[in-house]
C-alpha cells in the first residue's frame, strides 16, 4: 500500500524502497507490451485536488494500482480551465506511463475559441462515469413541477433567474440546451453566474435565483433536508438516488439530456498493445463494486464505455456542444 503515512511511520522501508527503485529504474526497458507496466504510472488530473475529477481519479487509481501491479501517482496540474493539464496529457510521451483523467470540458474549448484542443488529441482508454444535470427550486417555491416552472418561464419573460455555473460552462450549457429544446430564447431567463454547482444550489436555497440546473447530487443533502425541491433530471432514465424525480422526456417530452462525464485517456499515438492493457484494467476497475459504491454515494452514475465507444461518444459530444454554441450565437445576433 503506497501511503504517505505508512511511509512516515517506516522511514527505513521508505529509504530501502527508494534505493531499490533507483537501482532498478535505469534498467527499465522501453515500454513493451509483455512487460508493461514495469514502473510507476503517472495520472494527470487537470483540476485541483478535491474537485469532482480529482475524486474520480483518486478512487479509480487506488484500485487500478492493484490491477496493474505498479504504483500510480496522481498529479494535479490544475488551473487555466483545465487547458494546461489536458494539453500536458495530449503532449506526454505515448509510452503508457503518463495518462490522464479528463472531464467534459474538453468538448467546449474549441467551440468557445479558448484552445484548439479536442478529443482527437487523445487516445481514449475508457469512460468511467457521468453526473447528470437536474432542475431544482427552493422548497416552498410556487413551482411544484417542471411543467409549472416552464409555464412560469413562458409567462414571465425576463423575470426568472437560473443559476449553477459560469456562462459557457457545464450546467449553463445544460440550461441553454433545455431552453433551446423547449423552443425558448435562453436570454428570457437571467443567468446568475456562480462558481460551481454547489454554489448554485446555495443561491437557490438562499432565495435569490428561481432554479438551478446543477446536478441533483451536488445538492443531495439540501434536498434531503427539505431546503430544495428537485423537479427533473436531464438524463435518459431516472437516477437511482432520486427515483421520484422524472426525466425531461417523461415530463416535458423533449429529448435534451446533459451530463458531465469523466474518463481515462492517454496521449495521441498510444500504441494499441499498451492501450489494450490499460483499457482492460480500467474496465475491470470501473465496473467493480469497490468503484461503484463510493461514487454512487456521491451521486455519480457509473457509465463505462470501451475505447471505441468512448471515442464515438466524445465525437458526438463535441458536435452537440458546437451546435449549442452556434444556436446561442444566432440568438444573440437576432
Amino acid at each position: 500500500m503506497r501511503s504517505p503515512e505508512k511511509r512516515y511511520l517506516r522511514p527505513a522501508a521508505c529509504i530501502a524502497g527508494a534505493v531499490l527503485a533507483m537501482l532498478t529504474l535505469p534498467f527499465a526497458a522501453p515500454a513493451r507490451a509483455d512487460t508493461y507496466p514495469s514502473r510507476p504510472i503517472t495520472v494527470i488530473v487537470p483540476y485541483p485536488a478535491g474537485g469532482g475529477t480529482d475524486i474520480v481519479a483518486r478512487t479509480l487509481t487506488g484500485l487500478l494500482e492493484k490491477e496493474l501491479g505498479v504504483p500510480i501517482n496522481v498529479i494535479n496540474k490544475a488551473g487555466g480551465g483545465g487547458i494546461p493539464g489536458q494539453t500536458a496529457i495530449a503532449h506526454a510521451k505515448p509510452d503508457g506511463y503518463t495518462i490522464g483523467v479528463i472531464a467534459s470540458d474538453i468538448s467546449v474549448y474549441k467551440a468557445q475559441g479558448l484552445a484548439d484542443l479536442t478529443y482527437k488529441d487523445m487516445t481514449p482508454i475508457g469512460q468511467t462515469n457521468e453526473l447528470a444535470s437536474g432542475v431544482s427550486v427552493i422548497e416552498g417555491s410556487p413551482y411544484k413541477t417542471i411543467q409549472e416552472l416552464v409555464a412560469g418561464i413562458k409567462a414571465h419573460p425576463g423575470q426568472l433567474k437560473a443559476t449553477g455555473a459560469s456562462p459557457g460552462v457545464n450546467w449553463h450549457i445544460a440550461f441553454s440546451g433545455l431552453m433551446l429544446g423547449l423552443g425558448l430564447d435562453p436570454s428570457t431567463v437571467t443567468w446568475v453566474p456562480t462558481q460551481g454547482g454547489t454554489a448554485g444550489h446555495l443561491d437557490v436555497a438562499a432565495g435569490n435565483s428561481t432554479f438551478s440546473t446543477a446536478s441533483l447530487a451536488e445538492g443531495r443533502a439540501l434536498i434531503e433536508a427539505k431546503k430544495l425541491r428537485p423537479l427533473a433530471v436531464m438524463a435518459k432514465e431516472r437516477l437511482q438516488l432520486f427515483p421520484d424525480v422524472p426525466t425531461l422526456k417523461e415530463s416535458l417530452g423533449i429529448d435534451w439530456t446533459f451530463a458531465l462525464w469523466h474518463g481515462v485517456v492517454g496521449p495521441k499515438g498510444l500504441p494499441d498493445e499498451l492501450m489494450n492493457r490499460l483499457s482492460a484494467a480500467v474496465e475491470k476497475v470501473a465496473t467493480s463494486e469497490a468503484f461503484r459504491k463510493p461514487l454512487e454515494e456521491r451521486g455519480f452514475s457509473l457509465v463505462y464505455r470501451d475505447p471505441a465507444a468512448f471515442r464515438a461518444f466524445m465525437a458526438s459530444d463535441l458536435a452537440e456542444m458546437e451546435r449549442i454554441f452556434v444556436e446561442l450565437d444566432k440568438m444573440k445576433q437576432q
Partner: peptide, 20 residues
C-alpha cells in the same frame, strides 16, 4: 456536516470521505 456544503477544498475532500 449539516448540508454537505464544502466551505473550502479541505472539507470538499472530507465530505467525499464521509460518503465513501
Amino acid at each position: 456536516i449539516v448540508f454537505a456544503i464544502p466551505g473550502d477544498t479541505i472539507t470538499a475532500i472530507g465530505i467525499g470521505v464521509l460518503y465513501l
